[in-house]
């Protein structure tokens, strides 16, 4: 079908097409190079900063997972092993027993174990924990703040945009490097003692 005088036209078209292709390629490459300056080889994961957290309870409801990937984590090193634990007991509780009427945790996820007089150990049963932060609030208000909310990375599905982060009123969520995925605050016991 092709006549010889059509040839230059086709060649020109080919040339233009190649040029366009090359410029698109350069465009993509340029864009990649532009952002590549601020890249890291590793991954980032979401984590919340307990120092900013106000325990509003949205971690329990706004995660894409049910129950939430945010759990209460117990930093034993900070714990005072109190008998009257603000994280375990409802306020105004008078009889310090493990009865349901005394427990702050709505799902019975904190286990209280006698260690020695007058100390008790508190352990979080994570599968039961829904991340509501009630105990965290209690511990922060009356105790040492050893109960803290954290995203558990064995559960978290690593959404590109964490759906709790965008509803967190305290702006406590941020992307952190995956090799240091936890932001537990461990107010150094020793340092404090030194000061005294």
């Amino acid at each position: 079908m092709e006549t010889p005088e059509n040839d230059p036209k086709i060649n020109r078209r080919k040339f233009i097409a190649n040029g366009a292709r090359a410029s698109v390629l350069i465009g993509i490459g340029g864009l990649a190079a532009l952002v590549a300056k601020k890249t890291i080889a590793g991954q980032t994961v979401w984590q919340l900063d307990p120092a900013k957290c106000i325990q509003c309870g949205r971690c329990a409801t706004n995660c894409v997972l049910t129950p939430s990937a945010v759990k209460c984590v117990h930093v034993y090193a900070m714990c005072g092993y109190c008998d009257l634990c603000g994280g375990y007991f409802k306020p105004e509780t008078k009889t310090l027993t493990t009865g349901a009427e005394n427990q702050l945790c709505p799902t019975n996820a904190i286990k209280r174990k006698f260690v020695e007089d007058p100390f008790f150990e508190y352990t979080i049963d994570e599968p039961l924990c829904i991340g509501c932060g009630k105990c965290v609030k209690g511990c922060g208000a009356f105790g040492n703040g050893s109960l803290q909310l954290q995203i558990r990375h064995n559960i978290c599905v690593r959404c590109n945009q964490c759906s709790i982060a965008r509803s967190c009123p305290a702006d406590a969520f941020s992307r952190v490097p995956a090799n240091q995925p936890y932001l537990l605050k461990e107010s150094g016991q020793e340092e404090n003692n030194n000061k005294k």
Binding site: G99, A100, E101, P106, N108
Partner: peptide, 16 residues
């Protein structure tokens, strides 16, 4: 006290 305990158990059961 007993009533609370039963109700609490029911609530948790219902939830889970």
């Amino acid at each position: 006290r007993q009533e609370i305990r039963e109700l609490d158990l029911l609530a948790r059961k219902a939830f889970f």
